[in-house]
Design a protein around this nucleic acid. Sequence first.
RNA 1: GCGCCCGUAGCUCAGCUGGAUAGAGCGCUUGCCUCCGGAGCAAGAGGCCACAGGUUCGAAUCCUGUCGGGCGUACCA
Length: 543
Amino acid sequence: MLDYLEEQIRARLIQLDWPAKQIQLSRPKKAENGDWASNIAMTLARDLKRAPMQIAEELLAEINLDPEIVEKYEIVKPGFINFFQSASYLTTQLKHILELRENYGKNAIGAGKTAQVEFVSANPTGPLTVGHGRQTVLGDTLAAILTWSGYDVTREYYFNNAGRQMRLLGESLKSRYLGLKGQSIALPDGGYEGHYLIDVAKRLLEEQPDLDVESDVNIFKDYAERSIFAIIRSSLKRIGVIHDVFYNERSLYETGKIDEVLAILKEQDLLYKKDGATWFKTSELGIEQDRVLVKSSGEPTYRLPDIAYHREKIARGFDLVVDIFGADHIDAYPDVLTALRVMGLEYEHIHVVIHQFVTLLRSGEVVKMSTRKANFVTLDELIDEVGVDVVRYFYIMRSASSHLNFDLDLAKRQTEENPVFYLQYAHARISSIFRRAKERGLDTDIRQADLSLLNEEYTIALINEALEFPEVIDHCRRALEIHHLPVFLYGLATALHKFYTEYKVIDLDQPDLSKARLALLEAIQITLRNGLDILGISAPDQM
RNA sequence: GCGCCCGUAGCUCAGCUGGAUAGAGCGCUUGCCUCCGGAGCAAGAGGCCACAGGUUCGAAUCCUGUCGGGCGUACCA
């Protein structure tokens, strides 16, 4: 419909030799304003120096619209052109859903192209927290949207198991281990206080009881890394996330990629030494101050490997790269992009999605969290408390750029107040109707259903709602925003419930109408299921 | 100080590249099951879209400024 109208209007513009402006078509909020509306006449008014109403008249005077698709059109007040779709168009589209089934909503925009989504990327210093959770689900769901858009998607986890933080982790574990043996050694300054390290220390003590103060800290570091990575991977698995690639920062050193970046920047005279450190002249490149790339200790700061990593992403040839960062990393990526630019690399296909923080609320109170101290809530604890479906939904129901209030009380309620159950209930309700229809001996073979019987107000509203699904997918992809999907699904569930209250599906006296309505419900269920599938939320047949 | 994000109903938030009378959930008031799942539906009350300018035929949406809140502003990641 959208493409069709755009094509027809464009043809008229060319015919009239009017400017080939972008043609905007939208779905009006009010039904009386048609199914699709265009503001083209108003946007042309200035170019043509004529009244919009007149322009619309002339534009439509000789337009050629298929009556099977567009029943009629109207020109209204300021200059809107409203199109009304025909009943046959609606039934054709409904058949489409029934034929496409689990493919309904997919498109081929990314066909033959590759995409990479980098997300989570937490270093193995502790379990995933509630904060990581948002990014985890956000990235996974955006990756799913890209898959539905035809891309060949790589989910990637970038991590660093070297450097100061990891050394601190090793020392912290050593301290805990020796503590268990009765040798009290203070945690290092800024060390990791989390209780999980004590558990790790206990297991290490069981496996290797003979370590002591003299033992190499690397033994502890490696053990901590392995143990914590196992915890992280198990959390990811629980929440349904599988990364295709775990990219170790260390490989950038081993393959010389770090040195290459330094060499290129040096060649461009963008590096200098000061106080024993190597600085990047970012202040000459539109950034407030210069940045340190290599510390006076000889260790690089995180920026340098990040630059090298992104250079590698470009070299790997992805058509689209999406980085998911938390708001606390907001300062890092301009430096990276700047470095890529001065190295003469194409980086327009790299998109950064920044999400704001998560606040946990319990009984209306903010749950205080601090990573340094032991009192953070882990993603696992959250899943234990409310379940995977609810966790996933709550994380993506709001736009990433908004702060997220995660209301634990609401999340735990298995009642009408919980939007997840509202959606799942819609799906289960349809399954239930099909079960009942079979019990009653109704012919549920919907293939010969006469869809033209579906012409009541709320029925048409429901079909229209379902037809928006592909547009929503497209919107999510374009904007790299996922929250439009749960918002859409919620509206679809509402339309379904409304339809259900208004009309009886199983009516033995009207088998043809029943069959048509069952066909409709099948299409709605397909749409709901596909949407939930993208979100990684289960679609139950009964609850 | 500077950079990014946010400010829409009592609360939590939608509102897509500017469009027609600003929406939803929760909470509050009131209705709807002899009938396919009431985990549902309907009605009502509730708004100077933070504030002030500007651009435009038209602004919650774009621009500037002000005021609030969050995050950052490291030789931590």
